[in-house]
Write a protein that binds this DNA or RNA. Structure first.
Lengths: 357, 357
DNA sequence: AACTCTCCCGACATCGATGTCAAAACTTGC
DNA sequence: GCAAGTTTTGACATCGATGTCGGGAGAGTT
């Protein structure tokens, strides 16, 4: 009997070096001359294995370059977590999205959780496709910056128990946690600031009206003006600017008009930069005030430096991630919307004095 | 017998709505009154299923909100691909990394392949941890921007047949495809440009010398100067600047020195911006020339606008991704290094005239 | 009506790993 | 030296899904 066992093991050993493909636990066990369960024990540091066998298994692992298949083990493990969450972002390469992404990563890193990231590009179909792809790959949780009109299609995902947090834009048709900027308040702060510096004729240059944050910023703009008894001039309100060049053209048109505004409020990054270019083109950057929503790199190095209502994408990412992980840890609460404050950063362009000072 | 079968199915049906957790193929099959293999056939569009059963399965899928577990099926499918690749980047939130990331995504999207992304932050341990985590999760391929001194530890991964491409920095100790900027040539072009504009005393402000690209850019700088018979002044060469403020301080020190350089060559983004700030602080931005390696947003809006040697991260990402996918498609070739050309973009700061014009 | 011949279906094995549990090997106590 | 107790071990079932293949139902033929 014992010799027979020895023979088996010797035979197994000689067959245990797979030249192609990845070594599996079975290969390790064969090479080490133990059962795969024992090898599993060694790998997971479970007690109850002789030192000699531990050493044999370790050696086999090193020799084969074995790496456990986390995916396969998550199939069996309770809860089936793969220790990866998904981020459905607007565009991984834009500064806001990538700052959010980075903040998620920093929180996830502490738990050895990896991140799937994808760009929606304001395309609702792409949003669904990404979410399908991430859930099919068993992402443990989702952070979503939605582009679609409503997200009822998420019901199944949520019912299945996958934690979902919306970031930057509120959920529509589903009830989940959300982490949003104070868009309304931030826009209003910009308007109050401009009014305080003597402006009444403030133009609004805004992003696509399908984007909730653009709507909220426009609301904040209107209401703050109304607080001062001012109604925006209809032709000084331009919506649906989604690229830098569209914004530049729109701002140029305003500046070349018969009664140009004395100040501009731009509701988004690229729009702000387009407006800066237009002001520069017309050499009006020191005459017409500008406050932009959302900060951007180098805003302080322009001349004049650009006054902005800064969001805090890093804080949003941290908060979103911590909500997800608390749910993954088993905490329960009613879905809640969290607002992250905005900050008015005065740099010069917003402090150009207007006619009513 | 037939009645018994009918009873079983009825019983199964009534038990087939799991209230918690995700519905599985088994749940679908039970609800539809078919075997799980038949349900699998319907889902994968395989022939050989009655219309009536197809309809029953479809209905069950809709009712349960069933979503296939891609992870589990990849276990069984030949090759075991999970249709996800991993990007090990310097920092997902910096413009270079995120442009690379985005380009990878664009290529991957055409194949419905998702992307894991992670930030190394120049930490070799983090690099290994990320690669371990991604391979444990069965990423089909890896794009790596390495931070470590050598990557011999990748041997197992490569032997297992996982395609690996290095981007931006060359592999050391392993033989894999690489997609690099022409760092040497780009730096040399910057120097030639400055010399042509009358500069001889050109300072070098560079990133950590552990970073290969920084080494190559420094080499290009030195050799191009040598071509003109010029040796850099030792105290006008500053290495190991890895933050904007370190670069600003270093540039300030140079400008305040007894014989300040007439031009600066900065080897990296943040260093360039730090130098811009220092020049601005000393109001020398129109007297001292500046050429930076790597373009950055708004460089054209500064005054003077910043002349740069632009890299092409998007092209690097596209190329890296296409190499990976060709290997995943089964193509074979010897590992090759591809160089992506750089472009000198003249914007003003690099065209400040020097004393030898 | 009996017999092929398709065609469809579902029991079974499998992917890589882990939880269960009873048998085997060991130790200890008398 | 033997029974009792403890530690180690590995066969087995399982996670969710797919490939294999023999068997059964139905259609078509004579």
């Amino acid at each position: 009997m014992v010799p027979a066992g020895g023979e088996n093991r010797a035979a197994a050993t000689s067959a245990a070096m797979p030249s192609k493909g990845r070594a599996t636990l079975r290969d390790v066990a064969l090479l080490a001359g133990v059962s795969h369960k024992t090898a599993s024990r060694v790998i997971n540091g479970e007690p109850g294995v002789t030192d000699a066998k531990v050493a044999a298994v370790r050696q086999a692992i090193a020799k084969l370059g074995y790496r456990p298949n986390f995916t396969a083990s998550s199939l069996r493990r309770a809860g089936g977590r793969i220790a990866a969450i998904a981020a459905v972002l607007e565009d991984v390469s834009n500064p806001f999205s990538s700052a959010l992404h980075r903040a998620l990563e920093d929180v996830a890193r502490e738990r050895n959780v990896m991140i799937f990231a994808g760009s929606v590009d304001e395309d609702p179909e792409r949003e669904r496709a990404l979410i399908d792809a991430f859930t099919a790959r068993q992402a443990d949780a989702l952070v979503i910056v939605p582009a679609s009109a409503n997200q009822r299609y998420l019901a199944d995902v949520i019912n299945a128990g996958t934690p979902v947090v919306f970031a930057d834009r509120p959920p529509v048709g589903v009830d989940v946690d959300a982490v949003l900027s104070d868009n309304h308040g931030g826009a209003a702060a910009a308007v109050h600031h401009l009014v305080a510096h003597g402006h009444r004729d403030i133009a609004y240059l805004g992003d696509l009206r399908t984007i909730t944050t653009a709507q909220q910023r426009y609301q904040g703009f209107r209401e703050a003006l109304a607080d001062h008894g001012v109604r925006p001039q209809p032709d000084h309100v331009v919506h649906d600017l989604h690229t830098e060049s569209a914004a530049r053209d729109a701002a140029a048109r305003l500046l070349a008009g018969p009664t140009p505004p004395t100040a501009l409020f731009t509701s988004q990054n690229l729009v702000t930069i387009g407006a800066v270019r237009a002001l520069r083109d017309h050499d009006r950057q020191h005459q017409v005030a500008l406050v932009g929503f959302d900060d951007f790199p180098l805003a302080d190095l322009l001349q004049p430096a650009v006054t902005v209502v800064a969001q805090n994408p890093a804080e949003m990412g941290r908060l979103a991630a911590s909500l997800l992980f608390r749910r993954l840890d088993g905490e329960h609460w009613m879905p809640t919307t969290h607002f992250v404050p905005t900050t008015l950063i005065q740099r010069g362009s917003g402090e150009v004095i207007g006619p009513h000072a």
